[in-house]
């Protein structure tokens, strides 16, 4: 049996299997790369860009003997296949600044009022903001006008918090085979819609047990009549930060 292939993530050697993306290999090896639209059960999406890494930067020596770093290409690690001998930078200031800025832009683009959000403490966006050291929104609040769709008997949609990750779209199409959700519009008018004649969730065939109703990384898709049942100190990211135990986000190996 030949030696496993490896690449380098922040100078640490990471094994990978043919066909794995950088983020899949990194998470399987216990190295956390921040992400929002990536999910181990779905096809890569590459839209949130939180998992951006720098690949194959080089250092050259100039004629006067100075060492100069030539940055490699930036790529979404959820859509980029791992390659033998690749040098990947993730936990470096330049990339961390980029991720911090992306989170700040998401926080002002929607209406994210964590204090009254049921997802607080188990929200991926909030968890990443803490993990990346986001101390303020930095950008002016966009104050987008969005509605709540409470028409479904068991599930409520609060569009104020949507980050357009399409996890619900993919879950509904790929797992539930229902196509309840889709994105519509372009640019800053892009938004989540429901696939029913009225446009209301209550007129779709979504069930509270569907994968799509349980995959939202933020506080858009909520189960009705349940809120704040887990006390402070016992919520998911109270117990351990989002970056703890990265293997939990890795793809589950298929049983042979």
């Amino acid at each position: 049996m030949s030696d496993p292939k490896t690449f380098f993530l922040d100078e640490e050697e990471i094994p990978f299997e043919e066909g794995q993306t950088i983020i899949q290999a990194a998470l399987s090896a216990g190295k956390f790369i921040p992400h929002l639209c990536y999910h181990p059960e779905f096809k890569p999406h590459g839209s949130c860009k939180l998992c951006t890494v720098r690949i194959d930067s080089r250092t050259v020596t100039t004629e006067d003997g100075q060492s100069v770093k030539i940055p490699g290409r930036a790529a979404a690690s959820c859509t980029t296949p791992a390659q033998e001998g690749q040098h990947v930078e993730s936990e470096v200031p330049e990339i961390l600044d980029l991720r911090r800025t992306l989170v700040q832009m998401l926080l002002v683009e929607g209406n994210h009022y964590c204090p009254s959000c049921e997802k607080s403490g188990k929200c991926m966006l909030q968890g990443l903001a803490y993990d990346l050291g986001v101390m303020d929104p930095h950008f002016p609040q966009y104050f987008s006008k969005r509605e709540v769709d409470a028409s479904h008997p068991d599930v409520l949609l609060d569009f104020n918090r949507c980050i357009l990750c399409e996890l619900c779209v993919r879950a509904s199409a790929e797992v539930d085979k229902k196509n309840v959700f889709a994105l519509s519009g372009r640019g800053n008018t892009k938004h989540l819609i429901c696939n029913s004649e009225s446009g209301k969730l209550g007129d779709t065939n979504l069930a509270a047990t569907d994968k799509a109703a349980n995959v939202c990384p933020v506080g858009v898709i909520l189960h009705k009549r349940h809120g704040f049942e887990v006390p402070y100190g016992q919520r998911r990211f109270d117990i351990a930060p989002i970056s703890d135990n990265p293997v939990q986000y890795a793809p589950v190996k298929e049983q042979v």
């Binding site: 049921e118 709540v148 809120g227």
Partner: peptide, 14 residues
């Protein structure tokens, strides 16, 4: 107005 009722005790205390 327009918010789900289970949010209210947490929201209104602000």
């Amino acid at each position: 107005e327009g918010r789900p009722y289970w949010e209210v005790p947490v929201l209104v205390q602000r």
